[in-house]
């Protein structure tokens, strides 16, 4: 029974599928036009996508829909499995995501396409039974496309978020040159493992590039320090020393000093100063160090 029923469904589906494909084939440009117009009317797009871009997307996607319908793939898997169509849908959603369009605009785009397709089929037949099965088919085809489009859109947004948080990490950990051979890292905000690793990498690279001999890590702007962060700071100081430079930590505020003492973390081997300016004056003394500076002007 199941087999017979399945056969009947699929055979009538095949008929509807051919009808939709044929109806579209004669009206590819028309459908694409209509779709673009519908999207512009919806005005849900924030303007990041131009009309010519819309038109190009529409041409590609409608053409891909036709070849998708011609393929032997089951109707609800055409969008996800037909290479050409899949690419057209993912490209469209990725562009929307990267262009900063809202999820609504992206979802409405697919819904508008449904409308454009139904209109095209309506022009090709007046039979209500045929129209109904065509509408069902279009629904199943575009629901697949809608799901894929949403997945891709979310993936695209996540990619942007990941990139931004990486950029933020870079921006939030600047290494600045404070004096000849002296670098400073003013840390502001909460420190975690990822951030301290970026600090360490940037600082060591800057030490090598600029041949700095003293690095000052200023933690005035760091609200709290826990065991993990203190250990990361120790690691950073040790890595700086391995490079052959000195490291000073400045701006340890009283509550943080208390926490460090209570946690039993030994910072005694680390050079610390109350303020950044104290640290800088110490650093300048260190760079003057045992090296005679013949080209330094006599000040006194």
């Amino acid at each position: 029974m199941g087999v017979v029923k399945g056969f009947l469904v699929s055979s009538s589906e095949a008929v509807a599928r051919k009808r939709v494909a044929d109806a579209m084939r004669g009206r590819v440009e028309e459908i694409a036009d209509r779709w673009v117009r519908l999207q512009v009317q919806q005005a849900a797009l924030s303007g990041g996508t131009s009309e010519s871009e819309l038109r190009e997307e529409a041409d590609t996607l409608v053409a891909a829909l036709v070849t998708g319908l011609d393929s032997a793939l089951p109707i609800d898997r055409v969008a996800s499995s037909h290479t050409e169509l899949r690419r057209a849908v993912t490209d469209l959603s990725m562009n929307r995501a990267r262009g900063g369009e809202s999820p609504t605009a992206t979802a409405l785009a697919v819904l508008a396409l449904k409308e454009a397709l139904l209109e095209a089929v309506q022009e090709s037949t007046q039979d209500s039974g045929e129209l109904f099965s065509a509408a069902l088919l279009i629904n199943r085809l575009l629901d697949g496309a809608g799901a894929l489009s949403f997945d891709t859109y979310v993936e695209g947004r996540e990619e942007i978020i990941r990139r931004q948080s990486r950029q933020l990490l870079e921006v939030s950990t600047p290494v600045v040159r404070l004096w000849r051979q002296v670098l400073g890292v003013p840390l502001i905000g909460t420190l975690d493992t990822a951030r301290t690793q970026v600090v360490m990498e940037n600082l060591l690279q800057a030490i090598q590039d600029q041949e700095a001999t003293v690095a000052i890590i200023d933690i005035t702007g760091v609200p709290t320090v826990d065991t993990a962060v203190a250990q990361h700071l120790m690691q950073t100081v040790n890595a700086v020393r391995l490079m052959g430079a000195d490291c000073i930590i400045s701006g340890i505020r009283p509550p943080i000093a208390q926490t460090i003492a209570q946690l039993g973390i030994d910072l005694s081997t680390i050079m610390t100063r109350a303020t950044l300016s104290d640290a800088l004056s110490e650093a300048i003394k260190l760079t003057a160090g045992p090296l005679p500076t013949p080209d330094a002007p006599a000040v006194r």
Binding site: S80, T83, R86, R87, T90, M94, D151, T152, E155, G156
Partner: peptide, 11 residues
Amino acid sequence: TTSRAARTDTP
């Protein structure tokens, strides 16, 4: 496969 294909052309 989905997430990979989203970034590259072929799965």
